[in-house]
Design a protein around this nucleic acid. Structure first.
Lengths: 222, 222
DNA sequence: AATTAATTTTAGATTTGTCTAAAATTAATT
DNA sequence: AATTAATTTTAGACAAATCTAAAATTAATT
């Protein structure tokens, strides 16, 4: 019932890649974890013997129900620590990820449940992602990609899917964070860039690549 | 500048065993870490090449100044987490050790310094042991072994040196914790057992073995 | 359909940390 | 002082997690 840091990192990455249960490939996972395909194959075999994975060689793989449960436990720990770091220790929301990456592997269940209680059973982490409860349930957040927002509507940023430091740096520079209310002014067909406006600031344009990674909740025009 | 969990456990154990710089032996350390002497020798060589240890084969060893600095950093992390667990998450003071043992290996300096600030720069952990500050300095606690307290004096429990779950269980059963004020009634020469009294409770006797592991600060008779 | 390209797996090596068994060294005892 | 006992180290093996290079399989293309 206890897994190594390495196993946990694989399980978590597979969970994120498979989304709603699609098959994941060896190369994809190798790239995600900055490792080599051969190493991935080795770990797949191990996770299969532990019954966490559905896997037939050359055919791709996905988590078993047990594997999903384990993944949700890891994600729960990760997001609770992120919440703690931002809310209590006053970390910037774009600094919490890497530290939480380490803390998530401390496996005491009692620790996590008490932390959860201490934090007031939060339902979303500082990136807007939902935190699974003790049984693995998450409250769905009604978020939609920024690219899907029609012109002249307002959204509130609820999460960002890519958490590379490069992108977080760009977001910070643009004054975009979780909770930021932004209005879509125009959408350009040519390169799918989007012109947006925040509060009283002059409007500016963001690339499709960036917009794709920003998720928002609808909000009424203010 | 970053060490593995295993290396950190060795460094910490050596620090505790060497006390005020006495030489530590291979067997001692092997027993402390529940490992084999051969494994200890392997690690000693590694720590020596990293200049954390003064070590000549067959001659015993002790931490170098650099090694001591590393040890104090680990102890700082351990004791801050213990304080957090007891103070914020409401763990019993006898449950914090094992969880802190895991948390102490998360190495982000920023995390620890922010945690320190959040906790209000505490100077002692829940066992009464001093917490090193960022530069490695500790406030000495003026504690004395319970066995050294003469009859008819009162002491306040400030720390316990043995933290086995067996002993902590016994202490809990006897209602002895950090901060407990107790009066020494009688000392028996025969087996060196000690009769003590806590508050209004009937007095009772504890073994020399237990008393040896309890440290107290003097307090005036109430 | 046959060939080429891409992906995935296997085989074998490496590093870290551990182990057992045997050898080397130091300490204790007759 | 010589022998015995205890401690410590070395030598060689093993498990976990990784890697490179080569082989096997699947996918794409002529």
């Amino acid at each position: 019932m206890n897994y190594s840091t390495s196993e946990e990192n694989y399980i978590k990455a597979i969970y994120h890649l498979q989304g709603d249960s699609r098959l994941v490939t060896t190369n994809e996972l190798a790239e995600e974890l900055h490792t080599r395909p051969a190493s991935v194959t080795d770990m797949l075999k191990k996770l299969k013997t532990k019954k966490l994975l559905h896997y037939e060689r050359y055919q791709g793989f996905r988590l078993s129900p047990d594997g999903k449960k384990v993944a949700l436990g890891i994600i729960r720990r990760h997001r609770l620590w992120e919440f703690f770091l931002a809310e209590k220790l006053k970390f910037d929301w774009n600094e919490v990820h890497d530290v939480a990456e380490e803390l998530e592997h401390v496996s005491s269940k009692k620790l996590i449940d008490k932390l959860d209680e201490y934090l007031g059973f939060p339902r979303f982490d500082p990136h807007g992602d939902p935190i699974p409860d003790q049984s693995g349930k998450m409250h769905a957040s009604f978020q939609v990609g920024l690219t899907e927002l029609p012109p002249d509507t307002i959204g509130e940023v609820s999460s960002v899917s890519n958490q590379s430091s490069e992108m977080l740096e760009l977001l910070k520079h643009r004054n975009i964070g979780i909770g930021t209310r932004l209005e879509v002014k125009k959408k350009f067909e040519f390169d799918h860039s989007i012109e947006i406006k925040i509060r009283n600031l002059p409007s500016f344009t963001i690339s499709e690549q960036l917009a794709k990674n920003i998720y928002v909740k609808y909000a009424k025009k203010s």
